[in-house]
């Protein structure tokens, strides 16, 4: 691997900007995601920033069950993100459908719609679990490139 590639990889691991998208969850997961950004946990120490625009983001953090109505919009957001991009499914609903699994109006998990890189189970997952998920994602990046 050339020095340039290594530099790019180093930068990529150290500055993942996230975009948070709620596909119809009960908001508990969202509060936990916000807790990750606030003083007690503060993921800015890893260089993680919350961005508003999909064009600026690297990691799409999805919470909540993927309803049939939102799936199309979720895909559109995903296509608007520039490569390389990653997807994190946070919460039991996003991982498998959770308590809504089998309902007529939801997909059985985010991976039915988008390629998912990291699953963070829990209802809602603790902020520590979400940070652990982020770290796993970064490790995957470091190994796979």
């Amino acid at each position: 691997m050339g020095i340039l590639d290594r530099m790019v990889k180093w930068a990529r691991i150290r500055s993942p900007w996230i975009l948070h998208f709620n596909t119809g969850g009960c908001n508990a997961c969202d509060i936990e995601v916000l807790a990750v950004l606030t003083p007690r946990f503060d993921v800015e120490r890893f260089g993680i920033l919350l961005k508003g625009s999909p064009r600026h983001a690297d990691v799409l953090v999805v919470t909540g069950p993927v309803t049939r109505q939102v799936a199309k919009r979720l895909k559109r957001i995903y296509y608007q993100m520039p490569e390389p991009k990653f997807v994190m499914a946070v919460g039991a609903c996003a991982v498998s459908g959770g308590v809504f699994r089998g309902a007529y109006n939801v997909h059985m998990g985010l991976d039915q719609v988008l390629p998912v890189d990291v699953y963070v189970p829990g209802c809602p997952p603790k902020p520590e679990a979400i940070i652990d998920g982020v770290v796993k994602l970064l490790k995957k990046l470091e190994e796979g490139g």
Binding site: M7, V8, W10, A11, R12, R14, S15, D42, E44, R45, F46, G47, D58
Partner: peptide, 20 residues
Amino acid sequence: VGPWITGPKGILQPIADIIK
């Protein structure tokens, strides 16, 4: 704490952002 792990005390954080 702000930027922390990128370089000493996160001093390289803006450079990492730009390169990425």
